[in-house]
Amino acid sequence: MTGIDVDLPPAGGLGAPAPRREPLLTPLATASTQAEVEQLRRNGRRRQGGPGRVLTWIALTLLGVVFVYPFVWLVSASFKPRSEVFDNRLIPETFTLDNYVQVWQEAPLALWLVNTVIVTVLAAVTVTLSSAMVAWGFAYFRFRGRGALFGLVLATMMLPGAVTMIPVFLIWNSLGQVGTLTPLWAGNLFGSAFYIFLLRQFFLGLPRDLFEAARVDGASQWGVFWRIALPLCKPALAVTLVFEVQAVWTDLMRALIYLRDSDTFTVPRGLKSLVDAFGFGGEWHWEIIVTASVITTVPMIIVFFLAQRQIIDGVASTGIKG
């Protein structure tokens, strides 16, 4: 459940009727053919003359530098000694790995990374499976009140996380789970509205005959879902998985609410504690904060490059479907 972070998996736009266009995430069509078709269309359109194109490229390059430079600055600063962190040099004057050694000593960073990996994997896998189950329930079965019930699913996306935050905290508190990692992922066992919506759209595009035929051949309802529908749904499952990995890895508020002991921190929560201890309110050891920020961010950059297509197609299709 990504209740708090409304940003990446955009959760709004409910009242708006979906534009009548075919979703990018269409089953049985790979994203690469999609991209190729797009490319073909692009090449045919508004072919520009020389000066226009050159200006576009100059603008893009300058903007590209602006967007990449903060990363470069951060990584570069993490290799500088304390006195040079703010010198804004691209190449460190004095190159040192001390910060990486020191941050490991100052903070249980390995533990934070392990905690975050555990939470992220559990959260992403459970939300993908549970949301797929529910999405299948809405896509395949026909029953009275289906439309209204699905409307309710969509309506929950509009609810700000702040409204349920306190009672949900009290639930976990009464179960004695505050201070453990459980509240950070266990809510995902029950599916998440945005992903249910996404996966249902995908299931609706699959040919019904396939499932009817399997039923006639004696497959159980579960068998149809598990052995036929799910494998066909891999592209959408991948998008769900990756979105949730990103949402959970970067989640700060839930970690602030539920984690108390430094040994149980996730990386974002740990980084926040380092900012408190070594930042402007603390001891001014910015080289530690900078290095920890790099360590927090790098896994997400790796995830992006591993799953670039899923992420970009996923984001693009959420906007198109509205």
């Binding site: 990449v68 990363f71 700060l252 990386v267 974002p268 980084l271 920020s293 927090t296 961010t297 950059i301």
Partner: peptide, 9 residues
């Protein structure tokens, strides 16, 4: 790419 950066960072 910046969108992948954790908000804390």
């Amino acid at each position: 790419l910046p969108k992948m950066t954790p908000p804390v960072a």
